[in-house]
Design a protein around this nucleic acid. Structure first.
Lengths: 231, 231
DNA sequence: AGCTCAATACCAAGAACTGGGTATGGGCAA
DNA sequence: TTGCCCATACCCAGTTCTTGGTATTGAGCT
């Protein structure tokens, strides 16, 4: 199946040719990639490299649209190249092609700025389709890798679900809570909500009771910890 | 191309046949899915449904391994079915097949517990490969959908990077900061740190200056927001 | 109709916090 | 060594918070 939804050559780079760097220390694999790009009329290979330092040099010296990189490089980690690319040429995309699939590596790559991540395994990778995906603002990602992302996003939701037994604040109490988090005094709070300054302490006491705290700073801390206040 | 890395029928459900529910309100599309599953020898169709309520009933009444669902249902949102599945049959997997690709919908689906998300577009979807992926603990995800997940994970990293220019607190100031977050008064703080109560306000003022705030609750809020205090 | 609860408003006393000073010693870097 | 900064300590005046009351209105539920 094609997990990618294809719409061909269309891309956010418009009609311009995609300038590419390929970094891969295995000569055979790299040559295969290079040939695929050469046979394709939508991209131009700006540089090919087998080491991190060569790649970093190429990123500094040439304008590119796409970095395709392995992670295990003889002189370092491809993630460094992705980070450098994000700093020097923020407009460019980055894609990982690696055998690594552990959570830490995958998440580090994505957080470093990789938009695509293909697993280098039995299946021969259709590089051109992946490049088209990237240039069209999509993210070609192997299903094993995607699982890591899904797991990560789902576990955040689980934590939020645990917070569901958090005390329920009334709308007014939420106003007050945000106010004290922002450091407003009772007077400022009253003014900003258009109510009497005498009413503020009542709400605050109710908040204290619900959060089982006894002053403003502890309330802010607890409310944040319980996810009632999201940053 | 196959973005999925295939290893065929192997799955974490072992040799057992995969029990499936298909929910899709478009009769033609649903029939196509049903036929694909019928022609495949690795799965058994437990139920097919065109509505949310039928699906919820099926989830309650039948043991299943996989829910394949559309989101736009005549009587509600398929995400509800995914949530129900997570509660009633937590062992089961869920996959979305929808035309929707907006961030909110995608993230809600994943957070509800969907492990796969295929976009219903021009490309005919290879359902069987997607099911194999899911049963093997991988996540078949269209590249347009994957982009949403990548974006979300990357923006969290960006925020963490911004935190690096957070003001540096001295060890003592960190003690004080934690103390006020826990709601201690100056006296309690002095006692717990074994220093004079007169010294506390000095540290607090320094903290205020560094965080550019003017009271305890705002300090707790800012310190939390900037990652100086981790929950 | 009666009940509960959120939201509103007011008063007052005592505790806690804030912001303005000043000063000493210790450690670390230029 | 000098200078800077952290940590310590003290004083004080003014402001704000906390906590104890009481009470009215309207929304929602039984």
């Amino acid at each position: 199946m094609s997990v990618s939804d294809g719409d061909g050559q269309s891309g956010k780079r418009g009609a311009s040719i995609c300038r590419i760097i390929v970094t891969e220390d295995d000569d055979a694999v790299r040559e295969r990639f290079v040939r695929l790009i050469a046979d394709w009329d939508g991209g131009e290979l700006v540089a090919e490299s087998a080491t991190l330092s060569d790649t970093l040099a190429a990123i500094r010296e040439s304008e590119i649209d796409l970095l395709i990189t392995d992670l295990n490089l003889p002189d370092g980690n491809g993630i460094e190249a992705i980070k450098a690319l994000g700093v020097i040429q923020p407009h460019a995309e980055a894609m990982v092609i690696s055998v690594l699939a552990d959570d830490r590596t995958v998440l580090d790559s994505i957080e470093a700025g990789a938009s695509g991540y293909l697993l280098k395994d039995a299946d021969p990778v259709d590089l051109v389709e992946a490049i088209n995906d990237l240039m069209a603002g999509r993210s070609p990602i192997s299903s094993r890798i995607a699982r890591v992302l899904v797991k990560r996003l789902a576990e955040r939701a689980e934590r939020a679900a645990e917070d569901k037994d958090a005390p329920k604040m009334t709308p007014r109490e939420m106003d007050i809570l945000w106010g004290i988090a922002k450091g407003l005094t009772s007077d400022e709070l009253a003014a900003s909500l258009g109510i009497s300054r005498q009413t503020i302490p009542v709400h605050i006491r109710n908040i204290y009771r619900k959060l089982q705290v006894s002053n403003r700073s502890e309330a802010v801390f607890e409310a944040t910890r319980q996810g009632i206040i999201r940053l």
